[in-house]
Design a binder for these strands. Structure first.
Lengths: 124, 124
DNA sequence: TTCGAATTTGAGTATGTGTTCATATGTACG
DNA sequence: CGTACATATGAACACATACTCAAATTCGAA
């Protein structure tokens, strides 16, 4: 009886193989908040329609109607997506009368896309 | 009556402002399939735990148990995530006995992460 | 071959996400 | 002012996703 319990404890104590790797991984891990923001950035770029928007804005600024017709969804849908992209500082806009012209916020976005394309084009 | 219908038609014919921008956007758009794969790649990197895994593997290879303890989830959860990363060629593994050691597949991944970090660190 | 350990797989589930519709804002112009 | 148009917002819904648990698989060694 006692032996059985002891074995239970011993078996469950540590299932991982290389404790020192786990420790150094924890030491060098990104700060919690930075990791969250980084993930949010990639996730924002990880939707086909948002990616289409970003790719289009890389060439020239466009308004909501244009983008809606371009990707074939409601203007409302585009507006929702643009809000996300704005909150992450991926795009910004300028107002001309009632029309909002959206553009890429900096060149990091397009750099990320081009780098990712390289990755894709190397594998089959 | 006729006038009303005509106005309806005219109003609904084209709601977009700059048809020529829409057209050039369509001309220069990424091929459908490439856009999908690109989005899938970013989406894969857009999850906090997957990002933790990638960041950890950037330093050194680790096995499933290690990663599970590192990020504090089930080994099963890690295995599910690693499968996604494998299918997108972000990670690969080598077997040593019963243990699978995972590593980053190429240096594009870490380059993407570092580039994205730059973007984050420039904005507030 | 049989056992134990590392990993994978599948089912189930709770939570997120992207879209549309209806409605509200805000801007220019008569 | 009030009308028209571009955009934004909120609710609702269908669908995806990330986790855990239980069971299957795979490998090395007794």
């Amino acid at each position: 009886m006692k032996g059985y319990l002891q074995n239970q404890v011993e078996r469950c104590e540590c299932r991982c193989i290389h404790q020192e790797r786990v420790d150094t991984a924890k030491d060098h891990a990104l700060p919690e908040k930075e990791n969250e923001r980084l993930a949010a950035l990639f996730k924002a770029m990880g939707d086909p329609n948002r990616l289409r928007i970003l790719w289009a804005l890389y060439r020239e600024e466009m308004c909501v109607c244009d983008l809606a017709q371009f990707i074939g969804v409601t203007e409302s849908a585009v507006s929702h997506q643009l809000r996300q992209l704005r909150q992450l500082f991926l795009v910004s806009n300028r107002r001309k009368g009632p029309i909002l012209y959206y553009r890429l916020n900096d060149n990091h976005v397009s750099a990320l896309i081009h780098l990712a394309l390289e990755h894709l084009r190397e594998d089959p």
